[in-house]
Design a protein around this nucleic acid. Structure first.
Lengths: 210, 210
DNA sequence: TTGAAAGTTGACACTTTGGTCAGCTTTTGT
DNA sequence: ACAAAAGCTGACCAAAGTGTCAACTTTCAA
């Protein structure tokens, strides 16, 4: 039988799919779904267009593969919001993790933002249900903290939106962030300063005063 | 001479250009620049495609006309950040105005977000210089408040980013906001609740405690 | 070594796109 | 009333787009 050996067999396939996905992330992020041309993805990944179609049968298939991969690695930053932690510590870690993630995965972050702005056309019901459920879990944790008197009674859903929005901004809207901060480009310490400002302001805003 | 009478002459031109711009805002917002088809704008504005080209000589011209119009009406919400006001009052009004504006001009807001995410390709140097300058002015106001001991020493640039990000989110990323808030769609009182939460949290975060 | 599966790709078919244009109708100052 | 300017539009391109395919090369278990 001609089945290639497990390891090397998967290697070519995986390598090329990874190249395509990687190029796709960059270009979908910059151009959105409708604006992206398969030929451009092909060029950026160094493969002929027909080869791209050998692995993915349509533009939509590439796009949804990216979205799926992205959502899978998405929940990670939220793991810090857990009931065992003190809110101050939890939010601090969350903000830091979120900013680091978006900084190191700018294209992914923008692609997701783009998808949402364009109406979340390719987020499945299941995807959205998942988002809702993850939010619910963390809302419950915050409600627990409020009930325990560890936090002021702030609406947890709006609070999460504030955090999400503030942390996404630096990567998603980098050109504006750059202008607002008067920097030629954002570097690690700009993200650290952002984390500090967001953390300090939000914590003072939600914790009982000492 | 065949020059039409000022008033009615301008009326047709203006009406049609307005129709095109209006349709353009919706579609550019949903599809981004590259993803938008002139034929779609034509259809949405109820005019034949050739008629669209009678008023605008290219896709880019429609797009930049929209951006220009948008930036012009952009500064308004920031007028509340002025040195005569007390910070508490100023930020409260600013947050309210910004949320109201984005709610009532969702498509514009998304179009701008889309433009930024896609790299701000059509923002001119002048546009960006303008943004920088407006920011500087308001940063100076905040610095004045800090120097006067009316506010805690919060980095004003990061603070403005927090405010901008938090207020934009509800319109730009509505599908996620809807899921996070567990509402079928956002209504006026969701925006009011958002304004209240953002205002309360931020104010506690930046004002000296009484 | 071999042959079947996996991978590769230039060339092609078909559709959609941005943009043009020639000739039409409507409007309007005189 | 009328001519010139303004407005309108179906039909048309060239270019660019998505997706297909048949024929080729590479890989690898037996």
């Amino acid at each position: 039988m001609a089945r290639a050996a497990r390891d090397p067999e998967e290697r070519i396939r995986e390598r090329n799919m990874r190249l395509i996905i990687k190029a796709g992330i960059e270009i979908f992020a910059r151009k959105g779904f409708d604006g992206t041309r398969i030929a451009e993805i092909a060029e950026a990944s160094g493969l002929p267009k027909a080869n791209v179609y050998y692995y993915f049968s349509s533009k939509e298939e590439i796009y949804t593969a990216i979205i799926a991969h992205l959502l899978a690695s998405w929940d990670d930053a939220l793991k810090y919001i857990s009931p065992e932690r003190e809110p101050a510590e939890a939010f601090k870690l969350y903000i830091k993790a979120k900013l680091e993630y978006t900084r190191k995965n700018m294209a992914e972050s923008r692609l997701f933002a783009s998808e949402i702005i364009q109406g979340a056309r390719f987020l499945s019901r299941k995807d959205r249900e998942h988002i809702r459920q993850v939010t619910d879990t963390h809302v419950a944790v915050v409600e627990g903290w409020i009930a325990a008197g560890k936090m002021l009674p702030v609406d947890p859903r709006h609070l999460f939106i504030m955090l999400w929005a503030s942390t996404q901004f630096y990567s998603d809207f980098e050109p504006v962030a750059v202008d607002a901060l008067k920097k030629p480009r954002l570097k690690a310490d700009d993200y650290e300063k952002a984390a500090a400002t967001i953390t300090e302001t939000i914590l003072r805003g939600i914790l009982r005063q000492p």
